[in-house]
Design a protein around this nucleic acid. Structure first.
Length: 580
DNA sequence: GCCGTTTTCGGCCCGACTGTTTTCAGTCG
């Protein structure tokens, strides 16, 4: 059995969780959490390293290295097995009850024998919580309410796109208040993680009282969880928790850093501050001796005062970005303004397109693009695909429309990767297209090796310029299918095929983590919206965030180049195929 | 358990809010 780094990271995350529930020293717990993070972020395959190499990785010592090789060799870790035997699995579920942490879970188990959420329900109903140290009547009520919410709500995490809609509405309302100087959403949403657990809103105001009051009293809010001078927590009508923090306008930058970074990024940055005789909190960067404030106004000032360049929010995950920003080696990643065109989009020539070709082209031109590829579905896709005749008719429509636009309309198609990697039409017909994306739309449950093989076979085709939404996942709805990414990356390099970062917030496929591996391999990427409507063209920002999460630079992203670069890329692939 | 421009031992990031407490522990982010 070959174990992936993710498999290994999960073991250490579980050790950390179980240690916490056994009351272990908190620094030891943190060491395991860090090890899990370091393993997850490692770019090298752990199974290719020996223990000495492993312990060279930051956050991994000899003890962790030994356990990693134990896992790689035997498929289990003795320490983890012992912890699993000692800690009832239900205690982990208990800590997912909001307001109930590891200490309380342990107390409930030791004093009352509670080892499940159901057990907690019964203990509350039979009033057995009363008399436990530290648990008063208010806690009992809170836990009862948390349990009823838990039952009503589904799994908890919300797809990022849904959360952004809520966050933007909350921000827009706060921005209208006269007291508010600045307002933004922060947290995992600003980092544009694919799913988020809650919505963090940050406002700058000299008088915070009315801002908190307006937030609490909004008709978007159904329940107030906490209300203080500095922080308000609510449940919104959409069922998701939203937290508001209000800070002095002078502290805006420090607060934005503090509330945007992942926990691990923040820990790393604050440690760096401490080593420089400084301390960082949400109010600013301060000298530890004199208490003098060194920086706080904006993010550039705060990072700058610690000798760092500003880290784009999606990269703030403690995946090496703190060290790179401090060492001046942080790459200049893709920004929205770098995009010169979009290489995957649909018109109503496809059955599922919701806007006319002209509407789509107009919208693309309004975004300032130099080119836009209309990649309507090809004939093998039932219902939505275009026959050869319809494609030829569309060719005339494109030619007619092109006369009125400076933007170059690339005549494209989204091909369907068949069971053995074949695609629609015949090679001569396909050679007449400017740009083709090939995607898997059928047989998504094939085993990994088969799925990988058919995609690689499609890459061999001289007219397949990019692979669309590589893993087929729909966030929160359909899991990614199993592909061997290393083999795909190698084939992409060998066949000169680009891999798409599908910017649709339902997909984000490649994921940021996969982008990082593609970047390390030097594979050409595209960032495309797969737009089926005019509004979908605005998804580009999600694709850019995913590219940043994977440290992608404009040089690796084909559609950051001008039209010539795109056309040269397709010609290179075709001439390479002829030469073989 | 990890780590070193004070260190191979003794530290390890920071603050808000709540509830149960007469000064703080637990939880959360």
């Amino acid at each position: 059995m070959a174990w992936t780094n993710e498999d290994v990271a999960r073991q250490f995350a579980e050790i950390a969780t179980l240690l916490k529930l056994s009351g272990a020293d908190s620094f030891r717990v943190r060491a395991y959490e860090r090890a899990a993070g370091a393993i997850g972020a490692a770019t090298a395959d752990l199974s290719s390293l020996d223990e000495a190499d492993m312990s060279q990785l930051k956050g991994l010592g000899s003890s962790t290295a030994k356990k990693i090789s134990e896992y790689l060799q035997t498929g289990s870790i003795g320490m983890l097995d012992e912890l699993r035997a000692a800690v009832p699995a239900g205690l982990i579920a208990l800590t997912r009850v909001p307001g109930l942490g590891p200490k309380t879970a342990r107390l409930l188990h030791e004093e009352l024998g509670v080892d499940s959420v159901q057990g907690l329900r019964e203990a509350i109903d039979t009033e057995r919580l009363r008399g436990l140290p530290g648990l008063g009547p208010k806690t009992e009520v809170n836990l009862r309410e948390a349990l009823s919410r838990l039952g009503a709500k589904d799994t908890g995490r919300l797809p990022m796109a849904d959360a952004i809609a809520i966050a933007e509405e909350l921000c827009a309302r706060l921005a209208r208040l006269p007291e508010v100087e600045q307002v933004a959403f922060a947290g995992s949403l600003r980092r544009m993680r694919e799913t988020v657990g809650d919505v963090d809103v940050l406002a700058a105001a000299t008088d915070p009282g009315p801002v908190h009051a307006a937030f609490r009293d909004s008709d978007l809010v159904t329940e107030v969880l906490a209300a203080g001078d500095k922080k308000t927590s609510v449940i919104t009508r959409a069922g998701v928790q939203a937290d508001l923090r209000v800070v002095e306008p002078d502290a805006w930058g420090a607060a934005l850093v503090y509330f945007t970074g992942s926990k691990a990024h923040n820990v790393r940055v604050r440690e760096r501050a401490v080593r420089r005789g400084l301390t960082l909190n949400e109010y600013g960067l301060f000298d530890r001796e004199s208490g003098e404030r060194r920086a706080s106004r904006d993010e550039a000032e705060v990072y700058g005062a610690m000798g760092m360049t500003v880290v784009p929010p999606p990269m703030r995950e403690d995946a090496g970005e703190v060290e790179a920003a401090a060492g001046g080696t942080l790459p200049r990643t893709v920004q929205l303004g770098d995009l010169r065109g979009d290489l995957h989009g649909h018109s109503d020539w496809s059955g599922d397109g919701k806007a006319t070709l002209e509407e789509m082209v107009t919208a693309a031109a309004e975004r300032g693009y130099a080119y836009w590829a209309v990649t309507d579905h090809a004939e093998d896709l039932p219902m939505n695909g275009l026959s050869r005749e319809r494609m030829l008719a569309r060719r005339e429509a494109i030619a007619a429309l092109q006369q009125r636009y400076e933007l170059r309309i690339l005549e494209g198609a989204e091909l369907n990767i068949g069971v053995d990697g074949g695609v629609d039409y015949d090679p001569a017909f396909l050679a007449g297209f400017d740009w083709c994306v090939a995607s898997v739309h059928t047989l998504m449950n094939r085993p990994g090796p088969e799925q990988t093989a058919r995609i690689i076979a499609a890459m061999e085709h001289p007219s397949v310029h990019a692979i669309g939404h590589l893993t087929g996942r729909l966030i929160g709805r359909r899991p990614a299918y199993d592909v061997d990414l290393d083999a795909i990356l190698e084939a992409a390099l060998g066949t000169r095929t680009a891999l798409e970062i599908n910017a649709s917030p339902r997909r984000l496929d490649l994921s940021g983590e996969m982008v990082r591996r593609a970047v390390d391999a030097g594979v050409t990427l595209t960032i495309s919206c797969d737009a089926h409507s005019v509004g979908d063209l605005a998804s580009m920002r999600y694709g850019v965030a995913t590219a940043q999460r994977g440290w992608a630079t404009p040089e690796l992203v084909l559609n950051c180049g001008d039209l010539d670069r795109v056309l040269t890329f397709t010609q290179d692939k075709r001439s390479r195929s002829r030469a073989r």
